[in-house]
Design a protein around this nucleic acid. Structure first.
Lengths: 287, 287
DNA sequence: GCAAAAGTGTTACAGGTACACCCATGC
DNA sequence: GCATGGGTGTACCTGTAACACTTTTGC
């Protein structure tokens, strides 16, 4: 069963192989990570700087600057050798889909994500022209401050030159149909922040309502009224006041909140979690 | 690459195989099709009768009777030989995921579905204990009156004894984790009727608003106010009056509507169709 | 005429948006 | 004090639920 013995033309007719690829979003690259900048003459690189905290977000960027980042891996073998691709890999016979996603993300980012959910399965036949047919099961993930915290990651290790973080709206050309997958994941992230509570997963354990609102604004790309956001967020019943307040600001200190434990079971969203019958409309009285 | 030469223990360690399975809903079994009834001592069978039209729905059933039906296929080989399973099969190297779903559905139902959309990918490692690891990409489909019309299907052929239609809430025990897949598909169908227009796909080319409302009630399992439903349905702008009216009723004839052409591109929903940024809330004025 | 369902009108209520306004802190 | 953002109050608007009411057919 050694596929490598086969010629290209033989591999062409094999049953499809299954792989997992993940789109992992974060509001900033991890400290010390390689940062890819797409220019006119290819990709140049920098290093992720240390930042004080998330509340510097709004001051660090103007409206045009990117707010979402994601890690890519440079391919070291055909097809698409040398191109950037989403973290991922083939599924071993004894590993769950989720476990494959987590393992490959861990290999690229050196950390576990704060959230993981299946996105879609892509299986167009023209995916790779000469090689074996490939079916890709895409996942999307979030890395929050808790996960990106320098203390959490083993930052002392030397940096893998084949892993870099890119701004989500300035990506290089990607291997396979990964560009399409990223676009779909972005849409899902935006749509999910509309009706579900995911924004807090970008933040640390405790946060102010202004920070939560800024995350939402960054994802949706539009301004949100602070007063109304406050009421709506608190009305959900998923936030708990910690009692502590923010310090070091040059204005009235904001209260710190945390997400209610148990309001969400796990960091991994499975198929059982249907978008919820939620509001539903126009039900007739049970007369 | 002949898998059948391998022993069971060898197959156990192969890379996962990919298959497609589909949950296909209809409001009634096709005329002449085999109908499976789950009793205390196994499954007994009947035959689908000819019915006048969909507007008999409400009179044919009381509240407790099932409203949704789906086709199952009896497995003729291990694993789970003899058990009922969702229509589907492995993915050939040169076929799209959607095409595999359509082909296997066509083989079981003898018709093309009126709607098809990817559901979820299931890949738990304990799926089949002794055989090769299996990753299942699940689809869900709808068969409407237009598709179930006896003139549309080749009903003169002898009936396949290994295909039968079952009431969605009285299913036999299914092969693999197909019970879980059906439950998930049901949830998706309900959730999708809440925010999207899918109910009309159960009906023919033209239909009354009462029929559309009855489909919605059948799916959601609750009464809907006719007056408000009328206004909301028409306000969507997706319905067009045909000019014709219903005849043969013993009350005021209802106007017939059809779905606006172009309001939806295709019967196949791909990944590009994101649930839409839709309502979105609390956007601040661009001051 | 009577029954039954189609179709219209109208009111009450809930939730969201916009925005005025007060509060607490740093400088 | 003044600037700045945190936090509260409130009027307005929109969409929905509820239900009374009129219309049009079959019998």
């Amino acid at each position: 069963m050694d596929y490598s013995r086969l010629s290209v033309s033989e591999r062409r007719f094999l049953p499809p192989a299954v792989a997992v690829s993940s789109v992992a979003f974060a509001l900033r690259p991890p400290v010390g990570a390689l940062i890819g900048v797409v220019g006119a003459d290819g990709v140049s690189f920098g290093r992720g700087e240390r930042r004080a905290s998330v509340d510097r977000l709004d001051r660090d960027r103007d409206a045009s600057e990117a707010a979402l980042w994601l890690p890519l891996v440079r391919r070291t073998r055909p097809p698409f050798e040398g191109d950037w691709a989403l973290p991922g890999g083939p599924i071993p016979w004894d590993e769950t889909l989720v476990d494959t996603a987590l393992r490959t993300l861990r290999a690229a980012v050196r950390r576990d994500p704060g959230y993981l959910e299946q996105l879609y399965s892509f299986g167009a036949i023209e995916r790779s022209a000469e090689a074996q047919r490939l079916v890709t099961i895409a996942y999307w993930a979030l890395y929050g401050e808790s996960q990106l915290d320098p203390d959490a990651g083993p930052e002392r290790d030397e940096v893998d030159p084949n892993v870099a973080w890119f701004s989500a709206d300035r990506l290089p050309s990607l291997a396979f149909d990964h560009t399409e997958i990223v676009a779909y994941a972005l849409g899902r992230l935006r749509s999910k922040t509309e009706y579900s509570a995911v924004a807090h997963r970008f933040l640390g354990e405790s946060f102010t309502l202004a920070q939560l609102r800024e995350v939402r604004e960054a994802i949706l790309g539009e301004q949100v009224d602070p007063a109304n956001f406050r009421r709506q967020a608190l009305a959900q019943g998923t936030l708990v006041e910690t009692g502590a307040t923010q310090t070091g600001t040059r204005h009235r200190p904001a209260r710190l909140y945390r997400f209610r434990h148990g309001a969400e079971t796990s960091r991994i969203s499975g198929p059982a979690v249907v978008p919820a019958t939620a509001p539903s409309q126009n039900r007739r009285k049970t007369s």
